[in-house]
Design a protein around this nucleic acid. Structure first.
Lengths: 202, 202, 202, 202
DNA sequence: AATGAATGAGGGTTCATTCAT
DNA sequence: TATGAATGAACCCTCATTCAT
C-alpha cells in the first residue's frame, strides 16, 4: 500500500513528523532534560496537548527519534551488505554513510551523540536493541572478511566491531562538540585507513 | 598528624570525598537528572544542606566528579609518557590504565560514559578543557611515534588520536551497558593489536 | 454577554481577580513574607501552578494589589479635582475617599499600611511612581488653593502635601493596628479641621 | 554603678551593641526578611552562633532595635515635657528631636520607617506598647495646651496627636525613600507652622 | 563566652500531563 | 483531531538555629 516505504516515514501523519523534527531542533538546542514539551510544541506549531496525541510522553519522543533514525541506518547498512561484495568496501561504505548521515544534520547528531546518552535508562534500552543490531551488522562484515581472508583471523571480531563503531562515534562526537566547523564526511578515509592498516609503520 | 584536615590526604575534607563518592553511586543508579540531591546526601550520611557547604549546586557535583577523575587520569598519563620510552609501549600503557580505571569502578564508569554526556552544556564545557588535554596527550605520543618511525607518517595524528580514544571509550561504554559481566582490562590487548596492525590481513 | 472574559468588566480574567482578592486576605492574615503562595492558591480555589499563569511571582502579586488600588485611587482623585471647584472641598473629598476606601476593607488596609511597607525594595519602587502621583495630586490642590487665596501662600506646598498624606496615612495605620473597632471615615472631619485651622487657639 | 546611664545602653555587653548596630546597617541595606543572621554576624565581626548568645532569635534583634530607640525617644520626650513650660514649645521640641534623631542616622530611619512595618505581628506588638506611649506623650501635651488655652479645645486630642505623629512620620518616610538628599531637621519648622496654624489663609 | 560546621524544615517555582471544550 | 488553561507533584536550595568543641 505505502507507495515507497523508504520515503514513508510518512505512513505517519504529517504532524508526527513535524513534532519529531521540532524535537530534534529543540533537544539539540536545550538538551533533552532542559527542553520543555511546550517548546517542542511551539517549534512544531501545534498546541501542547497535541504532542500527546502522537507520543505517549516526553521520553517517547526521544525514543522515537532514535528508533526512526536507527531504522533507516540499519536498513541502509543491510542494503550495503547485499549490494557490495568486498568486505573492505562494505566497511568503507558503512563508515561513509554513518559520517554522512550525521554530518548532514548537526541537530540530529547532537541528539544522537549527546542527548541520547542522557541516562542508563535510555542507553540500556537502546543498546539492547538497535545499537546491538548495528554492531551485529558490522561484526558480520568483519567475520565475513576473516573468512574471505582479507581481515586477520586472529582478531576478536567482537572487539573489532566495537572499535570500528567507537572510532566513528568518536569522530561524530568530536565534530558535534568542536567549535571549529569542518566537513565530517571527509574524515572517513583517514579513519578507514587507520582501521585497515593500523598505526604501525611497515 | 594532619592538623588541618583540609590539607591532608586528598587535600579535601573528609565529607567532600564522602559526598563525591555517594554522588557517583547515586548518579550511576538513577541518572544525574533523575537523582535528587537529597538522595546523595542520604547516601553520604549527611544532611541535605551539608552538600551545599562543599558544592555550589547539583551541577557542580557532577563537574567535580569529572574534574577529579580527569585530573588523576591526565597525571597518570603524563607519568607514563615520561617513564616509558617506546611510543608503542606508551599507548599500550595508556589504554591499559584507561580500561583499568573504569573497569575497577563500574559506578564511576557509568557516570563517565553516560551521565556526563547528558547535555551539550556539560559536554562542551568538558571537551574544551580536560578531554582536549587527554586527547592532546595521546596525539603527542602518536606524533612522537611518527617521528621515531614506528607509526606511519602518512596518518593524520588528529584523527588517529580520536580513533584511539574512541576505541577505548566505546569499549567502556559497551562494558557499562552490557548485561554480561566480563573483565574490561583484558580487552586492552585486542584493542591495541587492532589499533597497531589494522584489520587487514598480511 | 461578554464574549471574551478577558475583556469584560475589569478587563482581567475572572481568576486574576480571584487570586488577587485571595492574596489580600492571606497577606493581611499572615503577612506577606510569612504567607505561602500555596495559601493564596487554596484561598482562591485554584491550583498552586495557576497562580503563575496570572502573576510572574509572589512579589508581583503584591505589586499588583498596589497598582490596581492606586490606579483607582488616583482616578477617583482626578475626578474629584475636576468635579469640584473649591480647593478646600477638594481636600475634604480626597480625605473622605481615602478613609472610606481603606475603612471599607480592613484586609486591603492591612496590606497597604503594613505589608506594602515591607522592604525598601518595594517602597522605593512604589514611591517612585504611584505614591508620587498621589502626592502630586494633593500638592496641586494646595498650590491651587494658595493661588486662589484660601490657603496661606507662605506654606511650603511640598511639606503641606506630605503632612496631609501623613495625617491620613497615620489615621489608617492606627485604625488597622487598633484593637478597638471604630469607624474610620468619621474621623475625616477632625483631621480636616485640624489640617485647615491648626491647633492654635484663636 | 553604671557611670552614665544615658550613655550606657552599655549596661549591655560590648558585643550586644556591636550586633545591634550591625543589624541596623544590614537590615537597612537588605531588608529584614532578606537579611541573613549570618550577614549580621559578619558585619558585627562575630561568629553566627554568637548572635544567639545575645538575642533569642532573629525577630528579637529587630524588636531590640525598636525597644532601645523608643526607650531613648520617650525618655527624651519626657525630659522635654518637664524642662519646658509652653505646650507649643514642647511640641516644637518633640518634632525637632524626632526629625533630628532620624535625620542623623539614615540606616536607623530605614529600619524604623520600613522594616519595622514589615508585618502586623511586629506592628501590633509595637503599637500596643512603645508607640502608644509616644502617642500618649504627645496627647498629654495637646491636652495640656487645651487646658492652658493655647490649643483649640474643640479639637479631638486623640486625632490631633495622631495627625502630629503622622505628619512627622511621613516626613521621615519620604526622606528615607527620596532619592534627593536634603536635611530632614530643617523641615521641622514648616511642619510645626502648618500644624499650629493650619493651611487656611487668615 | 565564642565558634562555625552541620542541620533539616520549608517554600517558591517549574513543567509534564490532562481534559473540558 | 486539536486546543491550551489548569493541574499539582516534585525538587533544589536557603538559612535560622543548634551544639560539640
Amino acid at each position: 500500500m505505502a507507495r515507497d516505504p523508504k520515503l514513508s516515514a510518512s505512513r505517519k501523519p504529517e504532524k508526527y513528523d513535524a513534532i519529531l523534527r521540532a524535537a530534534i531542533r529543540v533537544f539539540a538546542r536545550n538538551g533533552f532534560f532542559n527542553a520543555k514539551v511546550a517548546d517542542v510544541a511551539k517549534e512544531a506549531g501545534v498546541a501542547d496537548g497535541t504532542v500527546y496525541l502522537y507520543f505517549k510522553n516526553k521520553d517517547h519522543i526521544l525514543v522515537s527519534i532514535f528508533e526512526e533514525t536507527m531504522h533507516e541506518s540499519i536498513s541502509e547498512g543491510r542494503e550495503v551488505i547485499h549490494s557490495i561484495d568486498d568486505p573492505r568496501e562494505k566497511l568503507k561504505r558503512i563508515a561513509a554513510l554513518h559520517l554522512e548521515r550525521m554530518g548532514a544534520d548537526r541537530d540530529l547528531a547532537v541528539v544522537f551523540q549527546v542527548e541520547l546518552r542522557s541516562s542508563t535508562k535510555f542507553m540500556e534500552q537502546f543498546s539492547e536493541t538497535r545499537v546491538s543490531e548495528y554492531l551485529d551488522l558490522i561484526r558480520s562484515v568483519i567475520l565475513e572478511g576473516q573468512r574471505a581472508g582479507c581481515f586477520r583471523p586472529s582478531l576478536d571480531a567482537n572487539v573489532a566491531s566495537k572499535v570500528f563503531f567507537g572510532a566513528l562515534d568518536e569522530m561524530v562526537t568530536n565534530w558535534v562538540l568542536s567549535r571549529k566547523s569542518y566537513d565530517l564526511r571527509s574524515t572517513a578515509d583517514s579513519v578507514i585507513d587507520l582501521y585497515f592498516n593500523g598505526v604501525t609503520a611497515a
